[in-house]
C-alpha cells in the first residue's frame, strides 16, 4: 500500500464516522480528535474500520500513532506489507 492508497482508505473510513468532514480542510499533521471533535468511540470505530479495510492490526501500544492523518498514513504504509 502506498501513501496515496493509505490516505484514501483512511478518509473513506473517516467519512463513515464523520460524514460532514471535507478531506481538503483536514490538517494532516495535527490532532484528529480535536480537529474533528471525535470522541473515544468515534476514534475506536475509525481504527476498527481501517483494520477491516486493510487487514492491518493496530495493537494498543500503537494507538497513539493514529492521532494524526500523517501518523496513520505512515503506519499503514509500513505495516501493510
Amino acid at each position: 500500500m502506498n501513501k496515496e492508497q493509505a490516505r484514501q482508505t483512511i478518509f473513506e473510513v473517516l467519512g463513515e464516522i464523520a460524514p460532514e468532514v471535507d478531506p481538503a480542510t483536514v490538517d494532516d499533521s495535527s490532532d484528529l480528535t480535536e480537529q474533528l471533535d471525535l470522541d473515544s468511540m468515534d476514534y475506536l470505530n475509525w481504527m476498527l474500520g481501517i483494520n477491516e479495510a486493510t487487514g492491518v492490526e493496530i495493537p494498543q501500544r500503537d494507538v497513539s500513532r493514529f492521532l494524526t492523518i500523517d501518523g496513520a498514513v505512515e503506519y499503514l504504509v509500513t505495516h501493510s506489507g
Binding site: M41, L44, N51, E57, Q60
Partner: peptide
C-alpha cells in the same frame, strides 16, 4: 485496562467509559 487491551484485538478493546 491498558494491560487488558494489549491482549485484545481492536474489535474486543474496552474503553474507559
Amino acid at each position: 485496562l491498558t494491560a487488558q487491551n494489549e491482549e485484545r484485538p481492536i474489535s474486543g478493546r474496552i474503553l474507559p467509559a
